[in-house]
């Protein structure tokens, strides 16, 4: 439970952080809230040579509207997202997801960027990022690139982040028209991580039928994913009970199911279907 030896650097700006990790791209790790990385280091699952702590770069923590987008700085804490009056109004899925994470202490320290960059198979933010079709802004010495959430989560604890790159910003298109959000989660009783988490982002037509649906599911497979069968079953449907049940039945189609002490793969898949159905119903009920 004691981490291997490492160097610790505290840059004052993003530019400085980028050049610090450029010096040793493979041996460096970015530290923000430390709620994913530090436990991994204590178990020696991660043994970085250099930790570059970006939590004190003030300009990396923000939530703002810009044109038709919402911009979120990578070191914005779960609590800042949970308590944002702006987000509750224009994108409630973010505060809903934030509120389900850990406890108050964790939410005050942990960051959205850290959670996304870690891609824990039981993390909450990947589900919300997928459901909101977020774009992630990555910066390295070669400049910036923007990656869609769909392409960002690659595998178990693996993202598209390359050595020497830092996740700087999360960009989300502001939901427009009539829309509804919901996040349903079964927390593990000990760790609080998601055994199953389902984020739903519904766009409705004036008559209440479904214009489009995007859904993110976490906890069920090696990484968070979008259940395409469920989304396409909803799209254009009337959202009546039968349509919602049919859509939810595709919640874990084709997924290599996680299987652990607390929940078998079969039980997880069952929970994913139940909570996908409930999340769709909640999102529909909350739509305005």
């Amino acid at each position: 439970m004691i981490a291997a030896q490492f160097d610790y650097k505290v840059p004052n700006s993003l530019e400085e952080a980028v050049s610090l990790i450029a010096a040793d791209p493979d041996g460096s790790k970015i530290l923000a809230g430390g709620h994913s990385l530090i436990p991994a280091m204590k178990l020696r699952l991660a043994q970085p040579q250099v930790l570059v702590d970006i939590a004190r770069i003030k300009s990396l923590a923000y939530i703002r509207e810009q044109g038709d987008e919402i911009l979120i700085g990578a070191t914005t804490t779960h609590y800042q997202l949970e308590s944002s009056a702006l987000l509750r109004q224009i994108c409630p899925l973010l505060p809903l997801c934030a509120a389900s994470i850990g406890d108050v202490q964790v939410r005050n320290k942990g960051t959205i960027g850290g959670s996304l960059a870690h891609s824990d198979p039981a993390g909450d933010w990947p589900a919300a990022a997928l459901a909101l079709k977020a774009e992630l802004v990555l910066i390295g010495q070669g400049g910036e690139r923007v990656v869609k959430a769909d392409d960002f989560f690659v595998d178990f604890l693996t993202t598209d982040l390359q050595p020497g790159e830092i996740l700087r910003e999360i960009r989300i298109k502001k939901p427009t028209g009539k829309f509804g959000h919901a996040y349903e989660k079964v927390p593990h009783p000990a760790s609080g991580f998601a055994v199953v988490g389902v984020a739903v982002n519904l766009s409705l037509k004036a008559d209440g039928s479904c214009e489009s649906a995007s859904i993110g599911v976490t906890g069920v497979g090696v990484k968070a994913y979008r259940p395409n069968g469920a989304e396409s079953a909803l799209s254009g449907s009337s959202l009546n009970d039968a349509a919602v049940i049919e859509a939810a039945s595709h919640a874990c189609d084709g997924v290599d199911l996680n299987n652990d002490l607390f929940a078998s793969g079969e039980y997880r898949c069952h929970l994913a279907k139940v909570h996908t159905r409930r999340a769709i119903a909640k999102a529909k009920a909350s739509a305005k």
Binding site: P39, H188, P189, A190, S191, L261
Partner: peptide, 11 residues
């Protein structure tokens, strides 16, 4: 022992 920490063993 595979429930050796409070992340696995739920009190």
């Amino acid at each position: 022992l595979i429930t050796g920490t409070l992340m696995d063993y739920a009190v």
